[in-house]
Amino acid sequence: MAVAEQQSLETPAQKADARVPTVIVDDVHIVYKVYGAGTGKGSATAALGRLLLRRGSPNVRRVHAVKGVTFTAYRGEAIGIIGSNGSGKSTLLRAIAGLLPPERGRVYTDGQPSLLGVNAALMNDLTGATNVILGGLAMGMSREEVRGRYQGIVDFSGINEKGDFISLPMRTYSSGMAARLRFSIAAAKNHDVLMIDEALATGDRAFQRRSEERIRELRKEAGTVFLVSHNNNSIRDTCDRVVWLEKGELLMDGPTDEVIKAYEKHTK
Rank of each mutant, 00 (worst) to 15 (best):
L116F: 12
Q7V: 13
G86S: 03
D110T: 15
A178I: 01
P255N: 04
R171I: 00
A2V: 13
Y74V: 14
A95K: 06
G128L: 01
K189P: 11
D237R: 06
I81G: 14
V118E: 02
G140H: 15
L122Y: 07
R50C: 00
V3D: 05
P12S: 11
I166R: 01
N232E: 03
A78Q: 13
L9Y: 15
D155Y: 01
N119D: 08
G88M: 03
I79G: 10
A206H: 08
F183V: 12
L126R: 06
E258M: 07
Q6S: 10
T70D: 10
V259M: 09
G203Y: 00
F71V: 15
R216D: 09
M123Y: 11
V154M: 04
A37N: 05
H230P: 04
N59Y: 03
A13H: 12
R205I: 09
V25K: 07
T172N: 04
G158T: 06
V107P: 09
A222Y: 04
V20M: 14
Y150I: 09
L126C: 03
V193Q: 14
E249I: 06
S174Q: 02
P113A: 15
V63S: 06
S142R: 09
A201D: 04
I185H: 02
V225P: 08
G80H: 02
P102R: 11
D27W: 01
L9G: 13
Y35M: 02
K247G: 05
I133E: 07
